[in-house]
Each structure stands twice: as C-alpha cells, then as structure tokens.
Design a protein around this nucleic acid. Structure first.
Lengths: 143, 143
DNA sequence: TTAAATTATATCGTGCACGATTTATTTGGT
DNA sequence: ACCAAATAAATCGTGCACGATATAATTTAA
C-alpha cells in the first residue's frame, strides 16, 4: 500500500519549506539577497569573521555549497574572504560596510514573515523547537 | 537586533527538510531514485496517468521543474509521457511495468524513515498536519 | 469564423545542494 | 626531521527549483 505524498511527513516538510522560501522571496528580493545568502548574512551579523567551516556547521552546508555562494556575496560587495593568518587552510568571512548596512535593512524580515503566517509568535517558536529536535534526531551535530 | 539562524523558524524548516532529505537518500539511492522522483512515483502509484499539471498541483512543482525530471524518469524506463488525445496540450504520465515494480520496492520507505526518527507515528502525523496547515496559510492551493 | 485571450507544457538562465575528488596546509608519530 | 594522516577549502558533475519567456493547442468573443 503506497502512501500518497499528501500523507507523508517528509512531503509536508519539503513543501512547507518551499512555501516559506517563497514567502521570504518578496522580502529578500528588494535587498538583492537569496534565502541562503540571508542566512549567511544573519549569522555573520551575530558573529563576524567566522570561517567557512563554522558557517557550514551552523547552517548545515558544505564548502561545495558555501564557497560559490560566498564568492557571489563577495562580488556583490557584502563580505570579504581572507585566509586566516594562523592557519592558512581556513578562510575567514567578514562583513563589509555594505554588508553591515544590508544586514541592518534585513533585520525586520523575520517579523514580517511571522506576520504573514498570522500565527502567534509562541506557536511559531514551538514549531521551531519541534523541528530542531527532529533534525537533531536525524542528523546530530558531530560531537 | 538580528536573529541568529538557529533562532529562526524558517531555518528550522529549511535545515530539517534537508536532514529528512539526507535520511531518505540511503533508502532511495539503492533504488536509483532521487527524492522528488520518489514523490512522483508515489503519486502515480496512487493515481496513474496524471497530467504534468495535476502532478504539479499535488507536489507544488512547476513544469520547468517537472518536465526535465519526468524526462529523466522516462529515460530510466519508469514512466511513459504521452500527449492527451482529447487535449493535445496536456501530457499524461503513466508508470511502465518497471515503474510499477519500482514503486512496489519503494513501498516500505516511509515506514523505514519513521523508524529512523524514533518517534511515535502519531507524533509524526501531528507534525505533518501542523506543517500542512502552515503551508496552506502561506500558499493556498488556488481555488 | 477568425483574431485575441487563455491554458499546458517546454526551454533558458541562475542559484542551491550534494557526492566525489583535489589541493594546500597542519598535525602527529616514529 | 620526516613522512603519513588529518583537516580546510575549492572544484567538478548532476539534479532540483524558480523566474521569465516561448510555443502550441484550445477556448472565447467580436
């Protein structure tokens, strides 16, 4: 007995993630940001000068995704990529002036999204925590 | 005050969807299926001979995604694509013998995934319904 | 009944994501 | 000190996803 996609949790996740992505698009497009770029920008705003590996650990992305993404952000003038002096294998990513300014403009995006859902912030936070718990069950961050 | 990705619902969704995708990969890879192809296969198993548009409405995908995906499935020998006799604009997709056989082999995948999560089926179903509700709030299926 | 509008699918270009591999650097063991 | 193992990014190839556009068939309305 095959399950229809509509009845699958995986599809609910897949399609809702796409719907959220689509809801973010009109908020990010005026800023010239894609959604993953917005995540990188937010992460750097909280802690600047992270290595590619640190960003990847937080955002669950590999260098094969991050490197071209960061290069695009670099050529947009939002970040700088510099080899770490102590360990030349590592590349540190930091926000430029323009990057900081852009992050400031993007600060209202999560609230605007929350309003689009029409749900109480507490419900959204609950869902976030349930999802994070499921994610850790499937793919624990390595010890 | 910028939110870190870790605190955002959108990122929880994004990253958990990826983790689920990654959990499905080892189940689907032996069958030669990608995750979206698995969704198409499941949908056709429930209702064969759907048009590209019908599949897209259920899976929330556009023809620009489905057409190449279906062509890959066709060249793998799992589906046939034929123009509808009554309306030549429409392309109907149906499972081949091999496609039916593959769908049968894939029937156990959702249960295997549920076991990977270690959560009760009722919890997973609840989460599915919460997500579907959020999705419909953001992107109602057009009337 | 023919021209305009609509609908269904396909095509093109860009960006994200992953597996597999490569290159450069650092670390560890002997 | 040296070489092997480990680590950090980068590169390559493939597939998914979307916006924008194109093409072809059908429907509608004048």
């Amino acid at each position: 007995m095959t399950l229809a996609p509509t009845d699958m949790l995986c599809f609910a996740l897949h399609s809702t993630a796409h719907a959220v992505h689509a809801a973010y698009a009109p908020l990010l497009q005026p800023l010239g940001l894609t959604y993953p770029q917005y995540l990188v920008l937010s992460s750097l705003q909280v802690l600047d000068g992270q290595t590619v590996g640190q960003l990847g650990a937080e955002l669950r992305l590999e260098s094969n995704t991050l490197t071209p993404l960061l290069k695009r952000m670099e050529s947009s003038g939002w970040v700088r990529r510099t080899r770490d002096g102590k360990d030349e294998r590592q590349v540190r990513v930091s926000l430029t002036e323009d990057g900081h300014a852009l992050a400031a403009r993007a600060a209202g995006v999560p609230r605007a999204f929350a309003e689009k859902t029409g749900l109480p912030l507490a419900d959204l936070a609950d869902l976030r925590d349930i999802l994070a718990a499921l994610r850790e069950r499937l793919k624990p961050v390595k010890a």
